[in-house]
């Protein structure tokens, strides 16, 4: 490449690539959201605004049938004649993903600490195994069906599967946080002051790494809530995980209604991310 060419066009071309790719990634997201409020979407742009019909149908506020069936509603709280109900698919997936995150915390934080803090034989292997997904969801699903035929389709099976599939993301997030801390000094200070090693780990190391742990939890939660491949293979009956619910709408419903289902999912991801960040800056703070 000649020098003038490189000087003149290099930067604009690279910047243009960024703009184009970001548009490619984000424009359909925005269109989906806008389209979810449209009554009609058959021309270039959606039309017949603004209607909440798609959202009402998806959320199960309007009667629907067959494969376009909407979410069911579970009452979770009854108080003096009023019932607080939530869409069952939604709360089901939220719960499953939280269960997965809980297991991820229990398995991911300790192993991330082992890799970040200590030197031991086989450390590279432990590191590689803990940050690389073992198998994709489809294959784990087949393996679960075979190994645990009765358990695999239950909530418990889904939670365990999610936790294994998403564990690498927790380990990576927490490990990079640990690597930015003076781990050895912190551990040695606390122990010289009389804290046993387990107590040091729980009261000094873990609270100091909270930002990494929270971001790991956010990542794992969103990925588990959206998990499709594993769920598709093992899920048998009952309430559907959210991703299966989405797939049913994408494959069977009208375009605008599918757009509403997908938009609802966008909203959940954004809301949970913001919520967990709020918790991160207040709830975990020991200074109150």
């Amino acid at each position: 490449m000649s020098a003038t060419l490189s000087r003149q066009f290099g930067r604009p071309v690279v910047t243009m690539t960024l703009f184009l790719v970001v548009s490619f990634l984000i424009v359909p997201v925005l269109l989906t959201f806008v389209g979810s409020f449209a009554g009609e979407w058959s021309g270039v742009l959606p039309s017949d605004f603004v209607t909440l019909r798609n959202w009402r149908e998806v959320l199960g506020l309007t009667e629907t049938v067959g494969s376009q069936r909407s979410m069911g509603w579970d009452s979770i709280l009854s108080l003096g004649g009023y019932t607080l109900a939530v869409p069952s698919e939604l709360i089901f997936s939220v719960g499953l993903a939280l269960g997965g995150v809980l297991i991820n915390l229990l398995v991911g934080v300790p192993i991330a600490y082992a890799v970040a803090r200590y030197n031991f034989r086989g450390k590279e292997w432990v590191n590689a195994i803990s940050v690389l997904p073992l198998v994709p969801g489809v294959i784990l699903g087949v393996a679960f069906l075979r190994a645990y035929p009765t358990l695999s389709g239950t909530s418990f099976g889904l939670i365990v599967g999610y936790s294994l599939l998403k564990a690498p993301f927790m380990v990576m997030a927490v490990r990079s946080e640990f690597e930015s801390m003076p781990l050895q000094r912190l551990e040695e200070s606390a122990r010289s002051l009389g804290a046993s090693w387990p107590r040091t780990f729980l009261t000094v190391i873990v609270p100091n790494a909270k930002s990494g742990i929270i971001s790991g939890a956010i990542i794992c939660w969103t990925l588990a809530a959206a998990e499709f491949n594993f769920s598709y293979i093992v899920w048998a009956k009952g309430t559907q995980p959210l991703a299966l619910f989405l797939q049913r709408h994408i494959s069977n419903s009208s375009f605008t209604k599918a757009a509403a289902a997908v938009s609802m999912f966008f909203c959940i991801i954004v809301a949970i991310t913001v919520l967990l960040q709020q918790v991160g800056s207040r709830g975990f703070d020991t200074r109150g």
Partner: peptide
């Protein structure tokens, strides 16, 4: 008692 160059204070307290 240990005192380090890097202080190693507990930032969560």
């Amino acid at each position: 008692g240990l005192v380090f160059q890097e202080y190693a204070l507990f930032d969560n307290m």
